[in-house]
Structures are given as C-alpha cells and as structure tokens.
Design a protein around this nucleic acid. Structure first.
Lengths: 152, 152
DNA sequence: TTGATATCATTTGCATGCGAATGAATTTTC
DNA sequence: GAAAATTCATTCGCATGCAAATGATATCAA
C-alpha cells in the first residue's frame, strides 16, 4: 500500500464520517437510562409513579406550597403537575386549599396518610437509587452523578 | 463540648441519615437531563420528535425490518412503536407491507421522502448531541458517555 | 386610579411509554 | 399431526410531558 492510498483512505474516512450511530447519541442512551430507572422504580414501588413520589417527597421536604411552586421544585410544568396532584388528591395523599391572600394560588399539602406513605417509601427510594447505580463502581458513581448534574 | 457530645452527634447523624434529597437522586436528575435533551432537540428539529427521528434513523441504518424488530432496535415496546410508525406513515415517511412468508410480520421501510428527511436531519442531530453535551469538557464527555452507557 | 403586564391555574390537543388482554400466525413438542 | 407454547401485532386504559389558549387575580406604571 502506498502513501497515496493511506491519504486517500483518510480522506474517505473523513467524508463518510457522516455515519450516524443512534446507539451512541446521548439522547438515545439518556432515554434508555431513564427507562431502566423507571422500570426499577416500578419493581420496588408499584402503586406510585416516580413523578408522584417526587411530589410527595418534595412536599414532605418543604411543607405546604402552591401547585405552581411545587412544579418548579420538581421540574414539572403547570399542566403536568396538575394531573399528578389531581391523582394524589383522589387517593387522599394530598389536600388542597386556596391561599388566603393571593386567591390565584392553590396550596398543596400532605395529608396524614400522605406523610405516612412518603416516610414509608423513602427507604425504598434509596434502594432504588442504589440499584439504578449498581452497574457502576463507587468511584464511578461519584463521577457520574457529578457529570450528570452538570449536564442536566 | 465533650467527647460524649461528639459521639452522640455522630450517632444522631447516623440515625437521621434517612434525610432524603430528591435533587440528588439519579432518577430525578436523569429525568431532568432527558427533559433538557428533548427541549434542545425540539429547538433544532421542530417537526419530528426524538422517538420519530430514532425510528427513521434506524430504518436508514438497517433498511426494511418488522415493526417489532424495529422496536427492539430503538428500545420501544410494541404498543409505543405502533403509534410512532402510524404517525410516520400518515406523513408519508415510511411505508408498510406484510411479510410474504410470515404473515404476522409487518415490514416497515423508508419512503423516498423519508430517506431524504433522515439524510437532511442527521447533521442537525449531531448538532443536538453536541449542544446537549456542551456543559461538559471534551474529556468529561468521554467519561460521561462511557458511564451512562454502562448504566443504561 | 386605571391600563398594561405578569402570574397562577385550567383546559385541550397531541405524543410518548407501559401493562395487560386479545387475536392471528408460527414454532415447538410430544 | 394435534396440542401447547411463542411470537407479532393491535387495542385499551392510564400516566406523564409539553405547547398553546383562556380566565382569574395581582402587580406595575404612567
């Protein structure tokens, strides 16, 4: 093989570099990783979805807040958070009330049952986190979480 | 403060270690990272969703396949892939036909328009990947993708 | 004060995403 | 070769997730 051949190969490689491998795209892998987590979550906590648990956990953390504010805290837009809260309310895990001063705001808070539920589930949630990260070594976990947070 | 006090504090810290910070859980950050990517995708490619693009890109890669097989390749269950393919078909980007031998299978392939669309969008998809990873340094990107893939 | 803006919440429409049930066709097994 | 188990696809029901439009209330500014 001559030098010209090598050069040609390089040029060709560069031209066909447009080759697109879906399985290597962040978006695709991110979607799969998310799917896997949801699946692990469902295996441990069957009667609550991750968004529902997020809402309860956040309410447990900050106490009563407006629906909108809660949405901001758990990264959910207004339309989505409404559906989540509606379903939690239907199950008696949260209760709603109007803000005395600002009548636009809808205050959300945990019911006694809701509080009991979160407190019961938090240990399971920690197991879920562990299992999700199980493919990584402890050192890798630290690196991964740092980079993921930086990217999110 | 005495030594006993310190010891007590440690024990207490251990007991109350149940403190749960939603924003530090993989699942939550993963969901946010995914949201961010979808948003970046939408900003660049407005008239196609990431799953729709994944289907087209995969068909471009492997050629004609069954709907089910395609679902496996792009990590979508049967019910979901059907909806995606239905919408692509309605837009004339893919066409369907029955497998001659195995009459259960529904073969999916790109139309001329579909092929033109994917080829036009692939460069944009690469931009999307870049932008999604933009918060990370080149070295971090390598590490991150490796760990993310290991976890997914 | 009032008129323009902004904020909070709701609703509608569309697109995933998955579990479970069903039906049709194929393969395996005995 | 007939019964049992699999596989492919479809359908239904439920739960996010987001854009856009709407209405009610608050806040800001002229």
């Amino acid at each position: 093989m001559t030098g010209e051949d090598n050069l040609l190969k390089l040029v060709e490689a560069d031209e066909t570099e447009g080759e697109y491998h879906l399985q290597e795209q962040v978006g695709f892998i991110l979607r799969k990783a998310h799917q896997r987590h949801v699946s692990i979550f469902a295996a441990h906590i069957g009667d609550l979805t991750p968004p529902q648990f997020a809402a309860l956990a956040k309410l447990h953390d900050v106490g009563e807040t407006s629906q909108n504010q809660l949405g901001t805290l758990i990264a959910m837009d207004a339309a989505t958070v409404k559906g989540v809260i509606d379903r939690l309310k239907a199950r008696g895990l949260v209760e709603l009330s109007r803000h005395e001063v600002d009548k636009r705001r809808l205050l959300v808070s945990l019911t006694v049952e809701g509080r009991a539920m979160v407190e019961r589930l938090i240990p399971l949630a920690q197991k879920i986190t562990e299992e999700t990260l199980a493919p990584l070594t402890p050192k890798e976990i630290g690196t991964f979480l740092k980079l993921l947070a930086k990217m999110a």
